[in-house]
Simulated scan of single mutants.
Amino acid sequence: MSYHVNEKGYYGNFGGAYVPEMLYPNVEELREKYLSIMSEPAFQHEFLLLLKDYVGRPSPLYLAERLSEKYGTTIYLKREDLNHTGAHKINNTIGQILLAERLGKKRIIAETGAGQHGVATATVCALKGLECVVYMGAVDIERQAPNVARMKMMGATVIPATSGSQTLKDATNEALRDWINNPVDTHYIIGSVVGPHPYPDMVARFQSIISEETRAQLKEKTGKVNPDYVLACVGGGSNAMGMFYHFLDQDDVKLIAVEAAGKGVESGESAATTLLGKEGVLHGSRSIVMQTEDGQVVEPYSISAGLDYPGIGPQHAHLFASARAKYVSITDNEAMDAGLQLARLEGIIPAIESSHALAYLDKMEFKGDETVVICLSGRGDKDLSTYMTHFGL
């Protein structure tokens, strides 16, 4: 079975490009050109040079000794939190800004939830001197104030989304409306493996540097390229797709994707898409979507601003439906406890998104000789006020 996109833009039953007629030329232009542009030697040279000298890659693969001791196994953390801008998001925005340049686009728009993708987009727009507009839910603007300040510092215009739950889904809706109104000069840098084809494949390819490096680093540290388990948190799912990418066809590697259960899967305040959703179309692709009986999108909830998305990337939907990866969920409280534990055991404060993946360690049983890699997708600076309030620190 193939876990990658086919020539029609589908992963099994999921994917495709469901877009308004006004956006068809943009999406079609991307589809026709993205692979050829990405394979150009000049593109690859500039992309890899920026990842090295600007982003600071390769990100370390860190043996978390005290965490390993606690769980009785060998746990490595892929330190995407040490990238410039503090998360994995910069890998994709570097790639897409180079693509946009080659397509002659002068204006960049983006959506953001936790603000990490917004910051990464503002960063590369400043680097390349392009106009940047970021849509962000009004609720997220309040709870992610440091990232909003960073975006504005770099010259981005941050526009609040005030409809619906005023979070990531609504920011994405507003960004799509903008693109419909400005189809010629604007490139939409989607931040996750969602949206119409070719975005899910394109973003996964840019993020695949995470698993590419991990295999080489594991070989150096352990003598083998494959771990026993790979864990990553999933909202739309870009850090997880990058972490899984080079392990998809390695059947001996168990892939675990951790969604946000919020206040409990059955609480009515959750973002556990694979448990609560069903097939549907959201933001331009067929995937698994949290929705009512008549197809209205259900408002998601998570304490983590980057995970409260009511859908999941179509490649993830295929991995779930084919059982290639295991999809699980973690509550707010479990994630917060895991974040505090990492801070106290390893001196690393993780983003609350990443804490969801860390929390799943409590639900796993180890024989003692396994190798576990967890994608630490972002740093917790942006979440300090949430941590402090939650724990009364």
Rank of each mutant, 00 (worst) to 15 (best):
A257D: 05
K367S: 14
G368Y: 11
G235D: 08
L49V: 11
D201A: 15
G306Q: 01
S59E: 12
P196I: 07
E111Y: 03
Y229Q: 08
L248W: 04
L49E: 15
G242F: 10
D251N: 14
L82W: 11
A122M: 05
K105S: 03
L99C: 03
A260Y: 01
D170S: 08
F247D: 02
Y360S: 08
P198F: 03
C233W: 05
V139E: 14
I90M: 01
L345K: 01
E266M: 13
K367F: 05
R31A: 15
K89W: 09
V124S: 03
E101M: 06
A87F: 04
L319R: 10
T74A: 06
L345P: 06
T389L: 07
L248F: 09
G118S: 06
I303H: 06
Y34I: 00
S238P: 08
H4D: 13
N173C: 06
V253E: 03
R150P: 07
T112V: 05
L50V: 07
G191L: 04
P350Y: 04
L130K: 15
V55F: 02
I97P: 00
P25N: 12
Y10H: 06
D185R: 06
M1Q: 09
S208F: 01
Y76I: 07
D383H: 09
G306W: 01
P60L: 13
A357D: 09
L342F: 13
R79W: 11
K89M: 07
E212F: 12
S39C: 08
E293L: 11
R102L: 00
C375R: 01
I189Y: 00
L48I: 03
C125R: 01
I312E: 05
M241Y: 09
G56Y: 02
R150Q: 08
A17C: 13
M153A: 13
T274W: 08
V372F: 05
T222R: 13
R143P: 07
D170Y: 08
E269S: 12
Y10C: 05
L342E: 14
A305R: 02
A42P: 07
A325W: 06
N83Y: 04
I75N: 11
M38W: 13
R102I: 00
M388V: 10
Y327E: 03
L345I: 01
K221N: 12
V298W: 05
N181G: 15
S322N: 10
S59C: 14
K128W: 04
L103W: 04
T112G: 02
